[in-house]
Write a protein that binds this DNA or RNA. Structure first.
Lengths: 137, 137
DNA sequence: ATAAATGCAAATGCTTTGCATTGCC
DNA sequence: GGCAATGCAAAGCATTTGCATTTAT
């Protein structure tokens, strides 16, 4: 999915394409699992008067229309990512890095998730927590 | 795992067994994925002067020693549960209910999570989001 | 005896909201 | 032109922290 595709879809969803929003989408493509704060600090370089509210509100809208996923956390602030391809995550508790993992076959997974076809699964997440190779060494 | 087993382990981990903590553990056995607030409101019935700090701090300690898992959320407050058996979750966006699901074989899952044996996986979660059978009807 | 846990209140930090102004469609 | 989005500041909420007192070990 390209940046323009995302922007087109946003328009179709009734969202106005302001320069701020376009840049937020660009940053979501560039950065790896950024927090709202990280996006904000990058935004400031191009839009010195941008407000955190704009960043938060835009991320919320993008999440509502399904273009962005939020990775929540017990303590620290949320991380965001584009809902491009399905993948799983590994969170290293040592360095804080979040790695994308290629998923296995999800058929068996979905059989469980749909509770034998009775539940409607809209999305799912697989999150691993531990220590990455770098930090183990 | 029984309540007493949990309490024994807590003691072994160096946690003092105060009446408040004992009751928090009891409530974790009784309630289904309670929030800290829910536990607090139940606590008050038995300990009218209990503070939210005690509830939050205890849950944090229990989480640190691995007896409790926290289910985070984008918007609402976290849900907590005892780390008893491994299971997955289904979150119904309509009624807010969190269902426990029996997991499938996790071998393939773990192969991905360990990044071919290079990462150390300490825990993992599988969370489904959608609409449950009741709410579909 | 002593170090940890409690209750209270204040503080923190992330996120949301109200409102007047601006700007996309 | 009209309504949505912006920036700003203030508010909201869940959670944490400081501190004096109490209590488990």
């Amino acid at each position: 999915m390209s940046k323009d595709t995302v922007l087109d879809h946003m328009k179709e969803e009734g969202l106005r394409l302001t320069p701020q929003r376009v840049h937020i989408v660009e940053l979501l493509f560039e950065l790896s699992h950024p927090t709202a704060e990280r996006i904000y600090s990058m935004m400031i370089q191009k839009f010195p008067y941008v407000s955190q509210a704009t960043v938060y509100n835009t991320l919320k809208k993008l999440k509502e229309i399904g273009f962005v996923k939020e990775l929540t956390n017990g303590d620290k602030s949320s991380n965001f990512e584009l809902t491009e391809t399905d993948h799983w995550h590994f969170h290293c508790k040592a360095c804080g890095e979040i790695y994308d993992l290629e998923p296995e076959e999800t058929e068996a997974l979905m059989a469980v998730g749909t509770h034998n076809g009775t539940f409607l699964v809209e999305s799912f997440q697989v999150e691993f927590y531990g220590v990455c190779a770098k930090c183990k060494a």
